[in-house]
């Protein structure tokens, strides 16, 4: 068999194309790799930007030391809490509302649907929202991460569209058996809508994990800081933090090994970054198909 001939211009095109995408992919991945290898390398070298391709003098001290940082544990707990609770709440609410708004029997159904969807197109603005939260005593309150995010019109549209695509006979059969709408929702629609709910869950979990603005605006209590916010403050004051840790550990005898691995501003910043980014890096490839599905369904509805 003769191979298909590749013309010169074809070869040039393909080489250029592969080269471009290889470079762009490296640009997207290398920064994360750079941070990860720096967190496990000799801290003096990494502080001088000398760890570039391979880690050197591998150690895990940074990860051990970082646990001693003021507020890290509580920030992790807050972030985890809001991610889990917030996601569950909004998924259940979206599932329920999406289902209800597809039920023609419902009184004022059209009005309710418009009432929710209209909120996508306007925004009172930062200050009025802030004052509202203040009046509701949601400032410095864990609930500020959860309650305002429960009703998400876009998710409701997604579930409603999905529910309407399910054969009506499924629900009718249950109705004949005497099931009420709550039972139908819980026993039939919830299990059937799993694919779309998984998509919504993954998007809102990432959103909760990454959320930064709400802490910045509504929270001043250190115990309610999230990892994202903590990271932001660490980047801005990494220098003072390094001295803090140094003072904490100076009671023990200093040998060469511990000197080499002493925390520098760079190491602290990068290690916290790694702690925040690793969950995303782990979760994303596993759930990629849900992300892609989400954007596709979303694009249909615009």
């Amino acid at each position: 068999m003769k191979k298909k001939r590749i013309s010169g211009s074809d070869l040039l095109f393909h080489t250029g194309n592969y080269l471009f995408f290889t470079i762009f992919t490296i640009l997207c991945v290398y920064p994360f790799y750079y941070i990860l290898i720096n967190t496990i390398s000799d801290n003096t070298m990494s502080a001088n930007g000398l760890i570039r391709f391979l880690p050197a003098h591998i150690h895990l001290d940074n990860y051990r030391q970082i646990l001693k940082l003021d507020g890290l544990i509580s920030a992790a707990a807050v972030t985890l809490g809001r991610t889990v609770i917030g996601t569950i709440c909004t998924v259940l609410a979206s599932a329920f509302l999406g289902f209800m708004l597809s039920q023609e029997k419902m009184w004022k159904r059209k009005f309710c649907y418009r009432f929710f969807v209209a909120t996508m197109y306007f925004n009172a603005g930062l200050i009025p929202l802030y004052l509202t939260m203040k009046n509701l005593h949601l400032l410095n309150n864990f609930l500020v991460y959860i309650v305002p995010a429960i009703v998400q019109p876009f998710n409701i549209i997604l579930v409603k569209t999905y529910t309407e695509s399910i054969p009506k006979s499924l629900q009718e059969a249950a109705e004949i058996d005497g099931a009420g709408f709550l039972k139908i929702f819980w026993k039939i629609m919830l299990p059937v809508s799993k694919p779309i709910l998984a998509t919504i869950a993954i998007f809102s979990a990432v959103g909760q994990w990454n959320s930064f603005q709400d802490t910045l605006i509504y929270v001043t209590n250190k115990e309610l800081f999230t990892l994202q916010y903590l990271l932001y403050t660490y980047i801005n004051q990494a220098n003072s933090l390094a001295t803090m840790i140094k003072n904490n550990t100076s009671g023990t005898s200093l040998n060469m090994a511990s000197l080499m691995n002493q925390q520098t501003p760079t190491s602290i910043r990068m290690t916290v970054t790694a702690v925040v980014v690793i969950p995303i890096l782990l979760v994303y490839p596993m759930f990629q198909k849900y992300f892609v599905k989400g954007i596709m369904i979303g694009s249909v509805k615009g």
Binding site: P31, F212, L231, I235, T266, R269, T273, V277
Partner: peptide, 13 residues
């Protein structure tokens, strides 16, 4: 899928 804070941290590094 990473937040802007993380992007800034990357930029800083």
């Amino acid at each position: 899928f990473i937040s802007w804070v993380l992007v800034y941290s990357v930029a800083f590094s």
